[in-house]
Design a protein around this nucleic acid. Structure first.
Lengths: 249, 249
DNA sequence: GCAAAAGTGTTGTGTATACACCCATGG
DNA sequence: CCATGGGTGTATACACAACACTTTTGC
């Protein structure tokens, strides 16, 4: 807890660009970065992977906000989603942290991936909108890189975790689940191999009922049994307080 | 993709939390967290996995320090290792970020895993020392959880990445490599299967020479060929500047 | 009866595991 | 010659990819 090596080093390291934070006239303020949390909220709807963005001054930007002392970073991410895009995510996972200079400030940004259910939030309020994750609008370069990396991680993790279920309602058909995989991965998958893998994973439970929609055979419906999910063991056990990392619906 | 929604929201969304930095003498100082970087530096020596800790006031603690505006978080982690334990790591990877209240301050901590070469740093300076990673001394609870989680991640990643090579000198025998795996994983592995896997990975190159030590057959030596390493594709492409995530020796 | 999506099995290929012996050297 | 660690191969089980047809329903 010896807080770092005393001021000597900071002094030698500091650039001549005596940077100021917005509300303080002290030149030493640059030794203290702003901290913000930014969340990449994904949703799958009508065959596309969507990302929630909010209107910035002239461009689009990730939902962001400052954490408070009273909450964990995870809780801050959840709160930010509610405040900015009016959505309650069903899964939240920390992505990465970076230090950067943007918009005149020195900022340390903690990024998150969140997953939401299509159609579950009403129309996005607060100047927010959904965009195709692979066809992003004009946005600042930091946020764009965050979204790109979030998509890489989402694509990787859908293969060996159960996050896909958080993009679907509590009850769903195997074809719907397969569609989520195909949309996220960006390519088709074989129906038989897919169903075998899913069943072998042992995390699905038939609800018993079926759903007819259209002039064809009705689909059996399933629900996700989180209690049989072995994938949750990969997350840090130290969420330091209240919330779980994988909100298991 | 409809772009350019105007600015109104930013004004309405911003909280009244006029944030101040600690040097302003303002009671609202708590709205601005301290930011620190803490590094779990691992090394494998004489059959044990070791972690570098520095002496705190009364207990042991992770090497830590504050990032500066002029450097990336990765660079801060590297600098902190040099300053606190006098070691240059050979691999660095961000672990996780947390917000916590400890020692009276609100702190956002960005944690890193680092790997070093046994015997490469001389005696640890600055009240630092090496401890068995599975038999930690008295230390604060936050740092202990960080070390525990770092070990979980290290154990997981040694199986599907090439990080193990960063715990060995440039030239090594297969038995030494296997020993590193066994020490990190905490259990023995089959020699033949191990060697087959390593060779199949295609990232090793025989140096051509051998090493005799003891009254038995000399071991062939190998070097790690980072250029044939497919594992580096999993890291974020946005390190925002100078340093690579996997310092490939 | 036909259009449209649901649902189902087999086969090959590669990858991981379990397991035991000979080799080269120093003393 | 023997003690010590270096080095090798085979048989088996499991996971994954490729591949086509039957079933159930609405119209």
């Amino acid at each position: 807890m010896t807080l770092g090596r005393p001021a000597g080093q900071k002094g030698t390291k500091r650039l001549p660009t005596t940077q100021r934070s917005p509300n303080c006239g002290d030149p030493l303020v640059s030794l203290m970065p702003r901290v913000d949390v930014r969340v990449v909220l994904f949703m799958v709807s009508v065959g596309r992977a969507l990302v929630a963005l909010q209107a910035d001054s002239t461009r689009w930007a990730l939902p962001r906000g400052s954490p408070t002392q009273a909450e964990s970073l995870d809780a801050a991410a959840t709160r930010i989603l509610t405040d900015t895009v009016g959505f309650a995510e069903r899964y939240l996972e920390q992505l990465y942290s970076i230090s950067h200079r943007s918009e005149g400030d020195w900022t340390v940004t903690v990024t998150y991936i969140a997953l939401a259910l299509a159609g579950a939030g009403g129309p996005p309020p607060n100047m927010a909108a959904w965009f195709d994750a692979v066809d992003l609008p004009d946005m600042n370069s930091v946020d764009r890189k965050i979204v790109d990396y979030a998509l890489v991680r989402l694509r990787a993790k859908i293969g060996y975790t159960t996050i896909a279920f958080h993009l679907l309602p509590p009850s769903f058909s195997l074809s719907e689940l397969q569609m989520v995989f195909e949309v996220v991965l960006g390519h088709e998958v074989d129906k038989r191999n897919f169903r075998r893998r899913i069943h072998a994973a042992g995390v699905l439970e038939a609800t018993g009922d079926t759903r007819r929609e259209g002039r064809h055979r009705p689909a059996r419906l399933y629900r996700f049994r989180a209690s049989h999910d072995a994938g949750a063991c990969l997350v840090p056990g130290w969420t330091f307080g209240t919330e779980l990392e994988a909100t298991t619906l």
